[in-house]
């Protein structure tokens, strides 16, 4: 596979390490509330099994060490979009 790195251009997937669904960016912030146990459980363990466009985290370990959010079609392996994970994270309001 070839991943089109937003900063470095097309790179072979051998340079990357795969982590999992991009949902992992969305870590709950409500740790102080008792109810957050369920949120953390959902965050850690529950995943959609998507047949289609899947947003997932890839790490450019043999490269610039960027974490990327790659949108890949799980049926065709077509890669539709590649973003820097930090931009995605900021985009959903994460900061410090």
């Amino acid at each position: 596979m070839i991943i089109n790195h937003p900063l470095l251009g097309p790179r072979d997937s051998e340079e990357f390490v795969y982590l999992g669904a991009a949902d992992l960016i969305n870590r709950p912030n409500n740790w102080e509330q008792d109810a957050s146990a369920e949120d953390f459980y959902q965050y850690q363990y529950i995943r959609e099994n998507i047949a289609g466009d899947h947003r997932e985290l890839w790490y450019h370990e043999q490269g610039d060490q960027s974490w990327l959010v790659v949108t890949r079609n799980t049926l065709s392996h077509e890669i539709i979009n590649v973003e820097l994970a930090q931009d995605v994270s900021r985009g959903i309001g994460r900061g410090k």
Partner: peptide, 14 residues
């Protein structure tokens, strides 16, 4: 790798 994940994905503005 984990530290980079924590920084870039969870707390990018630190």
């Amino acid at each position: 790798r984990h530290l980079q994940f924590c920084h870039q994905c969870l707390w990018p503005d630190l």
